[in-house]
Amino acid sequence: MPTQGACSSTFVVFIVVICAVVQKGTCVTPSPTSPTPVQKPCNVRTSCEDCLANVTCLWCMTNNTCSHYPVSSIIPPSSVCSLSQARWGVCWVNFEALIITMAVVVGTILLSVMVCCCCCYCCRKSSSGSPDRDEERLARRREEARQRSDDRRVDRKARHDEIRKKYGLVPDADHPYSKFENE
């Protein structure tokens, strides 16, 4: 299991490689009036820096040769050059270190995403509450609904009683015609 220092140094190497590749690969668009520069073929280049100036070339440290990068396979086969001796993009990082670094970074990102998804799932599941909490919440909602219903019922009864009183439909002693109804 790698230590914290090994992981952080691998991450630093990855960042440096990415920065170097991005810096090397700056885009220059030729003007319409200027002729397109003719690139030297890979096999005539003699130094690592000269070879890697063209992104289609691969430098092999074993025999100090520049060859065309085999695009048909993502990773160059050992017949072209061994991974520990192959250079692409920058001269100071071999293909093997680049592949390992990329695998570690991609693995870390995937693991982080999975952990975040699991945490979110667990938090959402626990926030829904236990059955006891759900029952208490449901009982509280029922009680609130019953209380509102009772309040509406009392208000309706008061309005109806006022209407009955207004039209003389409620028997009480204060009404002038109540004595005729009682006899």
Score class of each variant (00 low, 15 high):
Cys118Lys: 13
Cys118Ser: 07
Cys118Val: 10
Cys119Phe: 10
Cys120Ser: 02
Cys120Trp: 02
Tyr121Leu: 14
Tyr121Cys: 15
Tyr121Ser: 13
Tyr121Ala: 12
Cys123Gln: 09
Cys123Ala: 04
Arg124Leu: 12
Arg124Ser: 11
Arg124Cys: 14
Lys125Ser: 14
Lys125Tyr: 13
Ser126Ile: 09
Ser126Val: 08
Ser127Cys: 14
Ser128Gln: 02
Ser130His: 12
Ser130Pro: 04
Pro131Lys: 03
Asp132Lys: 02
Asp132Asn: 00
Asp132Phe: 00
Asp132Gly: 01
Arg133Cys: 04
Arg133Pro: 03
Arg133Trp: 09
Asp134Leu: 10
Glu135Pro: 00
Glu135Gly: 00
Arg137Met: 01
Arg137Ile: 02
Arg137Thr: 03
Arg137Val: 01
Arg137Gln: 00
Leu138Gln: 15
Leu138Val: 08
Leu138Asn: 14
Ala139Glu: 06
Ala139His: 05
Ala139Asp: 05
Arg140Ile: 07
Arg140Cys: 06
Arg140Thr: 11
Arg141Trp: 03
Arg142Thr: 11
Arg142Tyr: 14
Glu143Asn: 13
Glu144Lys: 13
Glu144Ile: 08
Glu144Arg: 13
Ala145Ser: 07
Ala145Gly: 03
Ala145Phe: 04
Ala145Cys: 04
Arg146His: 12
Gln147Val: 05
Gln147Cys: 05
Arg148Asn: 05
Arg148Trp: 01
Arg148Pro: 04
Asp150Thr: 01
Asp150Asn: 02
Asp150Gln: 01
Asp150Met: 01
Asp150Pro: 00
Asp150Arg: 02
Asp151Ser: 12
Asp151Lys: 15
Arg152Lys: 11
Arg152Ile: 12
Arg152Pro: 12
Arg152Phe: 09
Arg153Pro: 10
Arg153Ala: 10
Val154Phe: 07
Val154Lys: 14
Asp155Thr: 08
Asp155Met: 08
Asp155His: 12
Asp155Val: 05
Asp155Gln: 14
Lys157Asn: 04
Lys157Tyr: 03
Ala158Asn: 08
Ala158Phe: 04
Ala158Pro: 03
Arg159His: 09
